[in-house]
């Protein structure tokens, strides 16, 4: 009978070498600086607690994105997904949004999710672009498979880049027909969609070292934007 340790090795997918994502700084419309950096496995608990309040927010499909993202981050934390990575956007150390995906192999990437907490500042666009930058420029991949769960996502990725159809391939997210970002699409879009400054100063990096969360109510209000109907 195998030991627990041997069994665990069987349950974990094999991992391949993944390059780090070098952090970058982005000036937002508000003038605030957002630091985009990779989040390590040990930071998943804090990200899980950030997502939790959004599981029941139907607005703009946050519930399904939050639920799937929760499972993906949990799987990353507990070694049940192959070659996943997570990038976070932090403003003064406070979580503004996050993206994740995984490498299928050396040439193919699988985009998972983009979740914005601080809305109205194109945080999601910046983070999605960082994700594509990681796949194409840092991992040297040829293609990234992408789907959108919300009309907002469809406009941001499929139309804005624009992405090509690869509908013959089912995406890991529900078997939805895939769209694809190629190296050519990426570099064509890069001048208008991919920005940020490197290297990030030591002071800025220090400010983004620990992920801080906005309060649960702040998260809900920022996401839903609900404030009409009250005099």
């Amino acid at each position: 009978m195998a030991s627990v340790t041997d069994l665990e090795a069987l349950l974990r997918p094999p991992a391949m070498e993944m390059p780090p994502y070098p952090p970058k700084a982005i000036t937002l419309a508000s003038g605030e600086e957002m630091i985009v950096r990779q989040a390590g496995r040990e930071e998943m608990p804090v990200l899980l607690s950030a997502i939790y309040p959004l599981l029941l927010v139907e607005r703009d499909y946050y519930d399904i994105v939050a639920a799937r993202l929760y499972a993906e981050l949990l799987a990353y934390k507990r070694y049940r997904v192959k070659d996943e990575y997570v990038l976070v956007g932090l403003i003064d150390g406070i979580l503004a949004g996050l993206v994740n995906g995984r490498l299928v192999d050396g040439k193919l990437g699988m985009s998972y999710h983009t979740l914005t907490i601080r809305r109205g500042l194109r945080v999601g666009s910046h983070l999605f672009a960082a994700k594509m930058e990681y796949h194409i420029e840092h991992c040297g991949q040829d293609e990234v498979l992408i789907v959108a769960e919300s009309p907002i996502g469809f406009r941001r990725w499929m139309i804005e880049y624009p992405l090509d159809k690869k509908h013959e391939v089912q995406h890991e997210l529900g078997g939805v027909p895939s769209w694809v970002l190629t190296r050519k699409t990426y570099f064509d879009a890069k001048p208008r969609l991919v920005v940020g400054r490197r290297p990030v100063s030591a002071a800025q990096l220090a400010s983004a070292e620990t992920i801080q969360l906005p309060g649960e109510e702040t998260v809900r209000l920022q996401v839903t934007g609900e404030k009409g109907g009250k005099a």
Binding site: G31, G120, R122
Partner: peptide, 23 residues
């Protein structure tokens, strides 16, 4: 007001990032 978000000249016009921030 609907929008409670200050914006800056740098963020929406002069910074290189403005191309994404303010399409």
């Amino acid at each position: 007001a609907h929008i409670h978000q200050p914006i800056t000249m740098e963020g929406i016009l002069t910074a290189p990032e403005a191309v994404v921030n303010n399409p």
